[in-house]
Simulated scan of single mutants.
Amino acid sequence: MGKSQPHYTKEFKQQAVQLFKTSGKTKTQIARYLGIYDSALNKWCKEFDEQGKEAFPGKGYQTSIEEEMKRLKRENDILRQERDILKKAMSIFAQPQP
């Protein structure tokens, strides 16, 4: 069996990047200290520089805009269902009573 890839939290990645930026040490030194590959730290630094606080979105790889879009679509679906139920109820109540 192969080794599973370790999962690091968003906070860990941000702290690793901040440690590199503030310590004055090389990426290799920081990576060894943290017990990670220097290529991982290199990737995290690049992603943090490009995306800032939006970096490392977690599982699903969604940015805040994508999360908001997903939430709005879900809300829109619920509203459509409610509207359809109300239309059916109106047609039932609009029928003449015997």
Rank of each mutant, 00 (worst) to 15 (best):
I36K: 11
I36L: 04
I36M: 11
S4R: 15
E68C: 06
L41Q: 02
Q51Y: 09
Y8G: 08
K10A: 13
N76D: 08
P57S: 09
T26Q: 01
P57Y: 00
I78K: 15
K43E: 06
Q14A: 05
S91N: 11
K53D: 15
I36A: 08
K73L: 14
I36H: 06
E54H: 01
K13C: 10
E11L: 13
E66S: 07
T26E: 01
E82F: 03
C45A: 08
K70Y: 13
Q51D: 04
K70A: 14
K27L: 10
I65R: 14
M1P: 07
F12N: 03
M90L: 14
E50V: 05
L34F: 07
T9S: 15
Y61G: 07
N76V: 01
K59A: 12
W44L: 04
K10P: 00
E66L: 13
R71W: 02
C45N: 06
K87N: 11
L86N: 12
G60L: 06
L86D: 09
E47W: 02
D77W: 06
K27H: 01
T63F: 04
I85N: 10
N42M: 06
K21W: 09
P57T: 12
M69H: 10
R74I: 09
K10F: 01
K13T: 01
L19D: 10
F56W: 00
L72Y: 06
L79A: 14
R80F: 10
T28A: 11
K3T: 11
R32M: 10
D38P: 15
K21L: 14
K27I: 10
E54M: 01
E82K: 14
E68V: 05
Y33K: 15
T26F: 01
K10C: 07
I92A: 14
G24E: 12
Q29I: 06
Y37M: 03
S64C: 03
T9N: 03
L79Y: 08
N42W: 04
I30Y: 04
H7P: 01
K87Y: 13
T26D: 02
A55G: 01
P6D: 09
E67C: 07
G60N: 05
K13R: 15
N76H: 13
Q62V: 00
F93N: 00
A40P: 00
K10Q: 13
C45I: 12
P57E: 02
A16M: 07
K25M: 14
